[in-house]
Design a protein around this nucleic acid. Structure first.
Lengths: 341, 341
DNA sequence: CTGAAAGCGCTTACAG
DNA sequence: CTGAAAGCGCTTACAG
């Protein structure tokens, strides 16, 4: 493998000049730059990132930590982040915590501290003060996605608001008996996503004077299977079947649609169903939902990081940036067949 | 951040000894080792991976290149690989090519050559001789997953055999009119997965004297939507509706199940359906399938890499390791209602 | 078992 | 605009 010395010899300059010509840092005459670039190309020279990192202190690599990889939402965020990083010439080193156990500690106390990454993006993880502190002490900027984090630039989704909006959509169609499928507090993820969405649901109900009926809440995990099982309970109840269901995620909502079908109910004829996410399958199922653009979240997280990593920070003032969301009405929601009012 | 010098001072030894004590390379007395470890712990010392890599030439990082991230199969492989790498103290740097365009060239001609990774795992990518050559010239071991690659250790799935097995299962139940949903050659991935599975389907048919009927083949992409659309065509045909369908992936098979339901057909009463993968939703849909254990594939790829990276290579002889697969019979396949024989 | 010192391959003030 | 040289923080023959 040719090193910088070979390039310098071939181009007839010093290694310092090669470094300057190739990196763009410092002035080099156009003629010299051309000669150096030609030499580098001819030899197939590629800078050693370790040597470069050691000398500059910057690695052009960012660590991304996520709780799960194998879920549409998370892999979409990663995909968005990866593309944006590549564009900036950065690598993405992935730390997936889904194995559970000691992984989180290992990642935060060992892997992330080896000076291999310039910065960290933490997705849907409520970092502890210790985790944040260690990283910040090493001068590693952090961007959190999913919720606010003291001392950290974050992107967060207004989960309470999303739950409220989804419920309001159902209310505005005339539904008054609205079930909710979420998750119980115990099995919750870091940012209390299900709890917040449920709070939004309840506040929307209360706002129009509809009492919250605990019997209309069912829990299940954030999967199609989980939504299916919960919806079967909810919609199979002969005494109190809601005319609409708000599921805390699209995957649960899809499970609910399948459960309704299996019960012989039509959607939205017998029951309206709405989710949150705008999952890749939402359109296929005609699912009304609140879109939350995970790939864009990943990209945005990278842009914010770049602002911190490179001079000329723009809006350093905004510590917590709210994320966009949008109600997407498809064919799974409609007026109730027998409006009760 | 404390460096090796501070640790050496605190422990009252040279930096050489600190290095040996902490890395385990070279002899150090037990007493000294304890003192060094205590000092490192007290200072919160973590070795700089860049400095270490520069000195040793090894990075403890492997690059994983994949064509898509946002698909169950691929994210499962990554998940398996990531866990195995973490166990060995390695990082995983992810290169996702799904953005298309120039990414592949960029990754192979720039990112992967910066000496940042010790090795690369290429998933479902038919590397070109140039891509393989450049990596091997830099002494980077490669493990390919998905198919054979000249000059590279690979793990591959016998796609023709899988197609044959799935079809044989249907034949053995008594089906003779068996449709197939795959992908057209044009839109194929690197290893001709759909073509091979289709070849297996055809050979199984021919082996029992059932002629291959081109009208019973429909193409669609490897998604639920794609399978749904293709199955609608196949099962909606009033003149020639097959009694069974073999879909080239579970996602397509699930789409086919939903299509059958929408046509008022029962599965497996009116039509049997089988897929390939053992997708996380397969059990939920009662889908019979050929399981192919992607997480295990990721783990195995890592083990093979470790063998190459560290002395004591075991089975260097086996260049191409065939992967396990297994027929899983659930409730989507049964004897045809009106056996034709 | 342990230390002094060279070397890994770059980058960047410091001069000129 | 360009070069000589120090330095980034480790590791590892080479001695002892």
């Amino acid at each position: 493998m040719p090193g910088i010395i070979e390039v310098a010899q071939l181009a007839g300059v010093s290694t310092a000049t090669v470094s300057r010509a190739l990196s763009g840092n410092g002035h080099v005459s156009a003629a010299t730059r051309d000669r150096v670039q030609a030499a580098a190309l001819e030899l197939g020279y590629v800078v050693s990132s370790n040597a470069s990192s050691l000398a500059t202190g910057r690695t052009k690599n960012v660590g991304v930590v996520i709780p799960f990889l194998n879920r549409w939402f998370f892999s979409s965020v990663i995909e968005g982040a990866e593309q944006a990083l590549l564009t900036h010439g950065y690598d993405l080193t992935l730390y997936n915590l889904s194995g559970g156990g000691d992984e989180r500690r290992l990642v935060f106390e060992h892997f992330l501290l080896r000076k291999r990454v310039d910065a960290v993006i933490a997705i849907s993880l409520e970092l502890t003060p210790g985790e944040v502190g260690r990283l910040l002490a090493m001068n590693k900027p952090i961007v959190g996605v999913g919720g606010p984090l003291p001392g950290v630039r974050t992107l967060s989704i207004a989960d309470v608001e999303l739950g409220r909006l989804a419920t309001e959509h159902l209310l505005s169609l005339g539904h008054r008996s609205i079930g909710h499928i979420g998750e119980t507090e115990e099995s919750e993820t870091d940012f209390h996503v299900p709890t917040n969405r449920r709070a939004g649901y309840e506040s929307a109900l209360l706002a129009v004077g509809v009492p919250v009926d605990p019997e209309l809440f069912r829990s299940g995990d954030f999967t199609i299977q989980g939504g299916y099982a919960a919806a079967k309970q909810l919609l199979g109840n002969p005494r109190k079947r809601p005319t609409a269901v708000f599921a805390a995620s699209d995957e649960m909502a899809i499970g609910a649609i399948l459960a309704a079908r299996d019960l012989g109910l039509t959607v939205p004829g017998d029951v309206s169903i709405i989710g949150i996410d705008d999952h890749e399958l939402a359109e296929f199922f005609g699912l009304s939902t609140i879109a939350q653009f995970p790939a864009a979240q990943g990209r945005l997280a990278v842009e914010i990081l770049m602002d911190q990593l490179h001079p000329g920070h723009r809006d350093q003032s905004t510590v917590n940036t709210p994320l966009n969301y949008e109600l997407v009405v498809r064919s799974s929601t409609a007026r109730p067949a027998t409006p009760r009012r």
